[in-house]
């Protein structure tokens, strides 16, 4: 068993660890959906499961009511956009976001969440930001690099950029969590997270845990009135 798994099995205390990273905590009360239209679906499912939450591949309309948070994975943004509008996911995802449940979009998923997409119609316009597709060029220019992401701790995070987009402008309510070169690569607007790279292609679970913390907060907040 890896250290990662041992750490994940423990129930953490309140707040982030001394280095600022999200704590490993018991996430077993959470069900996280991964929009399973096309792309890196299994990698996200594995990351969620390794964090200790229940992972659910969402490939049918209607399943979205069951989840405490949703991940929209990377894939081909053109393809995913066409498919989701076809099956009426867009409306359901908007409802889920409006209910305060966290949504994490990686790469093509981030493009889907943007209110402004250079050169094309927005897909599920939720976040006040402008995004450029294939901002670094073609696959030949794809790369990996170490990113400074303070909310994930002092240890750099390996950013895997594959025909990646770049967030070029954000609105007032949007927090910039990481930048690379000329643009923003990780942004948050309340319960919505947009990531230009692929945390699911690394062994590092900190970004997924950061997302699960939001889901846990939302779940606890929802329970309080009933108590």
């Amino acid at each position: 068993m890896s250290t990662e798994q041992i750490r994940d099995g423990q129930s953490g205390g309140e707040g982030p660890l001394p280095d600022g990273s999200p704590p490993p905590r018991d996430y077993s009360s959470l069900t996280i959906g991964v929009l399973a239209l096309q792309g890196a679906v299994s990698e996200h499912l594995q990351c969620v499961a390794r964090c200790g939450a229940r992972a659910l591949a969402v490939r049918r309309s209607g399943l979205l009511q069951e989840v405490d948070g949703l991940i929209i994975p990377g894939g081909e943004s053109t393809t995913i956009g066409r498919l989701s509008s076809l099956y009426g996911y867009a409306e359901e995802i908007k409802e889920l976001a409006a209910a305060g449940k966290p949504v994490l979009g990686t790469c093509a998923g981030a493009i889907m969440l943007a209110k402004k997409v250079a050169g094309q119609e927005p897909l599920i316009p939720l976040m006040e930001m402008e995004i450029v597709r294939n901002a670094f060029g073609r696959q030949r220019e794809s790369f990996e690099t170490e990113l400074e992401i303070p909310v994930l701790g002092t240890e750099p995070f390996c950013g895997v950029f594959i025909r990646a987009p770049l967030i070029t402008a954000v609105g007032k309510g949007v927090e910039i969590l990481a930048s690379y070169g000329p643009g923003i690569v990780f942004a948050r607007e309340k319960n919505l997270l947009a990531v230009a790279f692929h945390p699911e292609l690394t062994e590092d679970l900190r970004l997924h845990r950061y997302f699960l913390e939001l889901a846990l907060e939302r779940q606890n907040a929802g329970r309080r009135p009933a108590e």
Partner: peptide
Amino acid sequence: MAERGTFRVKKGMAEMQKGGV
């Protein structure tokens, strides 16, 4: 320090195509 053409980046590109035609 960006590194291009690593095996992870090459293989990752194919991962993004999964479920597709």
